[in-house]
Design a protein around this nucleic acid. Structure first.
Lengths: 220, 220
DNA sequence: CCGTCAATATTTGTTGAACAATAATATTTG
DNA sequence: CAAATATTATTGTTCAACAAATATTGACGG
């Protein structure tokens, strides 16, 4: 029995940086100085650069030649693109799924968790549960490549939430929609569930785009 | 007007290595020695390692800790997974498309090219045209993220072709199916085109898996 | 003639320093 | 105050080093 997969340092670095990014520790557009991060994270510049390369391909960082890496600033276009990805992947995964799939239980668990968090007014937790819910939908497809790609895109989407200041608006209305989707799937009505999901995605995209457009006006 | 986007060296390195990989210059399972490639490509080890990291996340190389990087050996499972990705992305892109999209013209161009190449018996060219055809299908969705992800998966799929020795079997039967799909889309029958595409993908997957199973028996 | 184990040689993982090229900043000048 | 120039800082890349892990060699005993 192995003690651990023995992740390489650049990988671990990328993981911690990714966590920081989706936790909002950096603000979009911020430049990440190599020297500063090297000393703070106790790694060499070469190692840090490898981690940067990873996160750049994931879309979380942007690399400008001779200028350094910057936290990606989400745009209207990136949000539209990401929702196209979501519709493509999630719709198919759900409509072609069967209710006894292990991931279906995770969907239900996420819904329950989200309801409890909503009652407490813990919007951050509601958001996390929502993420888990949709990751579970993708997992219904039983494709590691799709799941990994989706995780990437979801992380990128999360960046756009930090441009907004009203987490309730972004998460609260969707708990019930998720509950309905999970319920339909449990009843074996996968196609209806997929249709409900598409409605969810459309509404969620519209809300996010509208909020983004408002915040863009108030920005620089 | 800028002369060029000024790609960074690790990026360029990754590109050339990727080209080599999908051209079959290395055999699956082969180890890529850092020192050997450093001197051959005239780059430092650090730079090469960054390129390795890139190609590893793309699935073309496998990184074994303390052992080095190896050309990915395709498996039955990876092929199944990749075809799930293809069905998910291509089906939706095609069924939701409209015939006047610029990418539709590229589909037709690829079909014409493939027909000419088939007549000449140039199966390599047939294969390239087939790749372009399906990349064009994905492009119908107008999503850079989906297109980039698909390109990655397509490159990985290409690796599995090198385990086989009969390119005609893998490409020849599909020229006509592609022509039919393109024709249906031109007639505005996107849904029928998508149905035909799904049939294509099913048959293509079956053929590839069968050939792979045969070659696995004759292997080590 | 094997197979086992220890000693040796490679190779990888990571660091640190170096240097040219580029961008940002400060300074001088008109 | 604006423009041009000099200075500084930062990035892109290479090189050399070393510990840790792996592969290889060779001695030894069965």
């Amino acid at each position: 029995m192995q003690p651990a997969p023995a992740l390489l340092l650049p990988q671990k670095l990328a993981n911690t940086l990714r966590d920081s990014l989706i936790a909002g520790d950096f603000t979009p557009g911020q430049r990440l100085s190599e020297q500063a991060l090297c000393t703070r994270l106790r790694v060499s510049r070469n190692t840090l650069r490898e981690a940067f390369r990873l996160l750049t391909t994931e879309g979380l960082l942007e690399h400008k030649v001779n200028r350094g890496v910057f936290v990606t600033t989400p745009t209207i276009f990136s949000v539209i693109d990401i929702y196209r990805v979501r519709r493509t992947i999630e719709y198919r995964a759900l409509s072609h799924s069967y209710p006894k799939h292990p991931a279906a239980a995770r969907m239900q668990e996420a819904v329950d968790h989200a309801k409890a968090a909503r009652q407490r007014g813990d919007w951050h937790d509601v958001g996390s549960a929502n993420m888990r819910f949709h990751a579970a939908i993708v997992a219904l497809a039983d494709s590691t490549r799709l799941s990994e790609f989706y995780a990437q895109v979801a992380a990128e989407l999360r960046l756009s939430f930090f441009l907004l200041d009203d987490p309730e608006l972004l998460h609260a209305p969707y708990v019930d929609m998720n509950a309905e989707i999970a319920g339909l799937l449990t009843q074996g009505r996968a196609q209806d569930a997929a249709t409900a999901l598409e409605a969810y995605l459309n509404q969620s995209e519209r809300t996010l785009l509208a909020a983004l457009a408002r915040s863009a006006g108030s920005g620089p």
